[in-house]
Deep mutational scan, measured.
Amino acid sequence: EALLLQRRRVTVRKADAGGLGISIKGGRENKMPILISKIFKGLAADQTEALFVGDAILSVNGEDLSSATHDEAVQVLKKTGKEVVLEVKYMKD
Rank of each mutant, 00 (worst) to 15 (best):
S37V: 08
H70G: 07
M91T: 09
L3T: 05
G27K: 03
E1V: 06
G54R: 01
V60T: 02
R13N: 12
H70A: 10
V60G: 02
G54F: 01
K25H: 15
Q47G: 08
E63Q: 13
S67H: 13
D71I: 07
L4G: 14
L51T: 01
L3I: 11
K14G: 13
I24K: 04
T48F: 03
A2Y: 15
D64I: 04
I39E: 04
I36G: 04
V12R: 00
L20A: 00
G26T: 01
L65R: 01
T48G: 08
D46Q: 07
M32D: 06
F40V: 12
E63I: 15
V88Y: 03
A68K: 09
G62N: 08
I36R: 01
S23M: 15
T48H: 06
F40G: 12
D55M: 01
A2Q: 09
A56E: 07
A45M: 05
K92S: 14
S23I: 11
H70I: 14
A56R: 07
L77S: 06
K25W: 13
A15K: 13
A17N: 14
D55K: 03
V88S: 03
D16E: 15
D55W: 02
L51S: 03
I36E: 02
Q47M: 15
A56T: 07
L58N: 00
N61D: 13
R8E: 00
D46I: 02
A56F: 00
L20T: 03
T80S: 15
S66D: 07
R8D: 01
G27D: 05
V74A: 10
H70F: 14
R9W: 10
F40H: 15
G21R: 03
K38P: 01
R7C: 04
L20N: 00
E72V: 07
K92G: 15
A45F: 05
L20Y: 04
L65Y: 00
D46G: 07
T48E: 06
E63D: 09
V53D: 05
L4N: 15
E87D: 11
G26A: 03
R8A: 02
D93P: 12
F40M: 13
L3D: 14
A68I: 06
V12G: 00
K38A: 12
S37W: 06
G21S: 03
A15N: 11
S23W: 10
E1T: 08
N61V: 01
I22R: 01
F52M: 08
G19C: 05
L4R: 10
V53Q: 06
V60Q: 01
K14C: 12
V53G: 00
K92Q: 15
K25D: 12
L4W: 11
A56M: 09
R13C: 10
I34W: 00
I57L: 09
G62F: 03
A2M: 15
K89R: 10
V88N: 01
S59R: 10
K89I: 11
V88A: 02
R13I: 15
S66F: 07
E49N: 15
N61K: 01
S37M: 06
D16V: 12
D55V: 01
D46S: 10
S59E: 15
A45G: 08
I57H: 00
T48Q: 06
L58S: 04
V76A: 15
V10N: 04
G62C: 05
A50F: 05
A50R: 11
T80A: 13
S37Y: 10
E63V: 14
G26V: 00
I22F: 13
L20F: 07
E1P: 06
G18L: 12
A2D: 15
S59W: 04
I36C: 00
V10Y: 01
V53C: 07
A68N: 04
S37A: 13
G26I: 01
S59G: 09
R13K: 14
T48C: 15
A2V: 15
E72S: 06
V53S: 04
G21Q: 01
G62H: 06
L43S: 10
D55H: 01
I24Q: 01
E72R: 08
G54L: 01
A45E: 05
E87K: 04
K14N: 13
M32I: 05
A68M: 15
L43F: 07
K89Q: 11
S37I: 06
Q47K: 14
G27F: 00
I36S: 01
A2P: 08
G54W: 04
S67I: 08
L3K: 10
L86M: 15
L51K: 00
D55A: 02
N61A: 04
E72C: 05
E72H: 11
F40N: 12
R9S: 13
V53F: 00
V88L: 06
G19R: 09
V12H: 00
G42C: 07
A17D: 15
A17K: 14
H70L: 07
T69I: 01
D71H: 11
R13F: 13
I36H: 02
L4M: 14
V12D: 03
Y90P: 06
L35M: 11
S59M: 09
F52S: 09
A45K: 05
S37D: 12
E87M: 07
T48Y: 03
T11C: 15
E72M: 09
H70E: 12
T69D: 04
M32N: 04
G26E: 03
I24L: 10
D16S: 13
V10M: 04
L5W: 10
Y90D: 10
G27R: 04
A56V: 10
A68D: 00
G81S: 11
T69S: 14
L20G: 02
F52D: 05
I36Y: 03
N61M: 04
F52G: 05
E72P: 01
G26F: 02
D16L: 11
T80I: 13
F40Y: 15
A56L: 05
E63M: 15
V60M: 05
I34T: 03
K92V: 11
K89G: 09
G26S: 01
M91K: 06
K25N: 09
I34N: 03
N61I: 01
G26N: 02
Q47L: 14
G54Y: 03
G21H: 03
I22K: 00
D55N: 01
K92C: 12
L20D: 00
A68F: 08
D46C: 08
D46V: 03
G26M: 03
L65C: 07
R13W: 11
A17G: 10
A2T: 15
S37R: 07
V10W: 03
R9H: 13
R9Q: 14
I39Q: 03
V12P: 01
T69C: 07
D55I: 01
Y90K: 09
Y90A: 13
D71E: 15
F40D: 15
R13Y: 11
R13E: 11
G21A: 04
G26W: 01
M91R: 06
D93M: 10
D93E: 15
D64S: 11
L51P: 04
G21K: 04
Q47Y: 07
M91W: 09
T48R: 05
S59N: 08
V60S: 03
G26P: 00
G18Y: 10
H70T: 11
A15I: 12
Q47V: 09
F40E: 12
T11Q: 06
T69A: 06
L65I: 15
V10S: 04
F52T: 08
Q47F: 07
D16T: 09
A50M: 12
D93Y: 09
A2E: 14
A15C: 06
D46E: 09
S23G: 14
S67C: 10
E1C: 07
D46Y: 12
A68E: 03
E87R: 03
S66W: 06
I34Y: 01
N61P: 00
I39L: 08
